[in-house]
Nucleic acid binder design. Structure first.
Lengths: 262, 262
DNA sequence: CGCGATTTTGAGCACCTTCAATCCGTGTGG
DNA sequence: CCACACGGATTGAAGGTGCTCAAAATCGCG
């Protein structure tokens, strides 16, 4: 099921200093602008093209890179001995995953949900950047801190929300983040890259029950969901009923494109 | 139930440079040594003495400080509109919480589980330290990154482990972290600061069911649990059965005391 | 001793799971 | 073009894990 082929290539571009956006750290960035895939402008990049279903990072192995998503969707997941899977989060173009400093055994795997293009940054390079450009530290720390906040929000869903609430909460989050990164397309619909099994593993449910819940929400005229096309019919009511807090779940880092993907 | 009185005092000590342990960033620290409460040695500190049950940080308010625990236990939690509570994690002496850069509305509250002493560090000071001492950035990023790993592990528990597994997993984690920070005392027992309601809110269960599960584990001769005194009788079997991974759940930052609490 | 908080135990119920069958859309080979 | 296979979605029926409600026992503490 998980074919792990990987295509790697290394590109050279014009030599360029680290493009930290030193003027933006204090939250001055326009957060409404979509974090579209960056134009490559680094001195040397390792770009990976990953087919859907392939693992980029594997649980248990020693991680040595962080990755910037240039195109496609990724998801982070944790596997138990007996195959139970928990999806921990997902990443879209512009997002960074596995921002680590020390090489450690990975606590989770990262898989391409769709065909994806990512850009690898070895930990040493990150450390170097941190040492040389103090402003970068602020940007990166904010990045990780936001990831932590979202993880906490997901914990709250898993521990204390009903299946219905969890599902609605998840849909709004996916919907908003997707529309933010892909502003083109149908004004009020997105195509979900997730199967219902993915949703189930993200929400701590079974695929069967996710399906029933989805159907229920359709029957309640809260959403339209057909062939993985999602439309949120009553965003306000849904957000209210699921306890969705835009300030927590959508608070991207203040300056997402402040760090050159390199 | 939550009395929120707070005692604050500001202390002056000998003026001192920031005591980052610049020699230790690369994981050279002896992680087996307990992270005992630090001796105060900073130029100016805001120390708070917090009674048990008081909130140090309140969800929704704008956070402006991070805190180092000097004494006692804290826990982070998130409250839903209708009062449902999810406990997101806990902190012991030596731990740092709310390591943020930007002032944002807090996504969670922090409460003193026992009477506690903490040391506040305003975000601006943290930013300053980052700018002035690049080595600190590495230390701090590692700190946050480890917190994220633990959050992910908890997500996996909440989403994909049974009540029995979750409970065992939690007990081992508390047990190990407690013994690491308080090496004195009975060789093989700890006193839990948590009520069974706390445990329930951490594990996404009800207190009633936590009780039944605890009793079951006692009946199975895996643990002894009486009057909040916990003894783990068969650590290997328990760790195996609950999927506890010491490398993930106990991987403290490489250099926890690398940062002066200030 | 008496009160409130916590723990413990029982009985019944519900949300979600498991197992299973069917349907549908897409791609593949004859 | 059709047959077939395959992954995913959908629906039904039955069962179990964990919840709710409730009461009693125990602990901590003034």
């Amino acid at each position: 099921m998980t074919h792990s082929s990987r295509h790697t290539r290394t590109l050279r571009h014009s030599p360029l200093a680290c493009g930290m956006c030193t003027g933006h750290q204090a939250g001055l960035c326009d957060m409404t602008s979509p974090a579209a895939p960056h134009k490559p402008r680094a001195s040397q990049r390792t770009v990976l093209e990953v087919p859907a279903g392939a693992d980029i990072v594997r649980q248990g192995e020693i991680g040595r890179n962080s990755y910037t998503v240039l195109d496609g969707w990724l998801f982070l997941y944790c596997l138990l001995q007996d195959g139970r899977r928990q999806i921990l989060g997902f990443a879209l173009p512009g997002d960074r995953v596995n921002l680590q400093i020390m090489p450690r055994p990975n606590a989770f795997s990262i898989q391409a949900l769709t065909a994806a293009t990512v850009c690898a940054l070895p930990h040493e390079r990150l450390v170097e950047a941190l040492q040389r450009h103090p402003a970068a530290a602020v940007t990166i720390l904010d990045l990780v801190t936001c990831a932590e906040r979202i993880a906490y929000e997901h914990m709250t869903s898993l521990g204390r929300r009903t299946a219905w609430e969890r599902t609605g909460h998840f849909l709004i989050e996916v919907y908003c983040r997707s529309r933010k990164t892909f502003p083109a397309g149908d004004a009020h619909a997105i195509t979900m890259p997730f199967t219902q099994s993915h949703i189930a593993d993200a929400l701590g449910l079974t695929a069967v029950h996710v399906n029933r819940t989805l159907r229920k929400m359709v029957a309640e005229n809260l959403i339209a969901y057909d062939h993985r096309t999602l439309r949120i019919l009553d965003p306000d009511r849904l957000a209210e009923a699921t306890g969705f807090d835009r300030d927590v779940s959508l608070a991207g880092p203040a300056c997402r494109d402040g760090l050159d993907p390199r």
